[in-house]
Design a protein around this nucleic acid. Sequence first.
DNA 1: TTCGTTGCAAATGCTTTGCATCCAC
DNA 2: GTGGATGCAAAGCATTTGCAACGAA
Lengths: 150, 150
Amino acid sequence: VPGPQADDHAHVPPRAGELFRAHGRRLTAQRRVIWEVLAEEPDRHLSADDVVARTRDRVDPSTVYRTLELLVEEGLARRTDLGDDRAYYEPAHEHRHHHLVCERCCRVTHVHDDALADLGTRVASAAGFTLGERELTLFGVCGDCRARGG
Amino acid sequence: VPGPQADDHAHVPPRAGELFRAHGRRLTAQRRVIWEVLAEEPDRHLSADDVVARTRDRVDPSTVYRTLELLVEEGLARRTDLGDDRAYYEPAHEHRHHHLVCERCCRVTHVHDDALADLGTRVASAAGFTLGERELTLFGVCGDCRARGG
DNA sequence: TTCGTTGCAAATGCTTTGCATCCAC
DNA sequence: GTGGATGCAAAGCATTTGCAACGAA
């Protein structure tokens, strides 16, 4: 586990800068900060508010909102609805997965798309509906909480 | 189609009044209005804002919010997240079903729980996660839009 | 130099809350 | 009569927007 003193922008995948520029976008210090905050949280998902809180001293809230929207547009981040009427953001570098939200501890875990493989087929034949790319959010109780009693 | 002068509370299922009272709650004119608005919309789902709009002349917005929350607490209505950062409400008299939201026409259709029957089993074995009662929301393209081209 | 970006502050808009009045039971 | 419910107005808050100053390319 690396110490807290990351020396520079080592965390920034070269892709970020490239991709920004490829779309006529500029890589600014603020955007780097926001991207790092998102990337340093590999498992969790951050609400816009979380990002605002973690960058308050370096980036203006309005810039955070504008940047998160931008990241989603450019495909660098994904926006997911995890209930609670908030949107959550995560870096988009992982493969497609769905979200399991524990209703007790609120922890969010992932399930690989494969586990739900034939869901699309079932829905299509049952309702003539073609599932899109959007990831799913499922609610329930995680293994830990379940073991812990109940 | 009945005229605008519905004579009385014919629309109100007896259950509503009973259930309200059974929980020490009172059935007021405003609650009846809100309940009717919800019940008259058999297929659709109304956002809090929709309900506010449809009752603006008869019920104060704050009362609408308080009542919707109450209805959910009492199990008379279900609150569902259909994306878009809004909560949607529907009467809870139907059997469990999930929501298909068309990303083109925004229409919401239902799939019966059966169609997704073994989803819970799959998720449980893949991630040790026990799905709860909450209904699912799936995004994609509905049959009509698909037929209409694309 | 240029034009995309930022910060600040003000504006939005949905939702919640305090409180006096009201009314269902 | 009494405590729950309502309306009104004000407060909250997350998010958006206008605009002048700023700075990446």
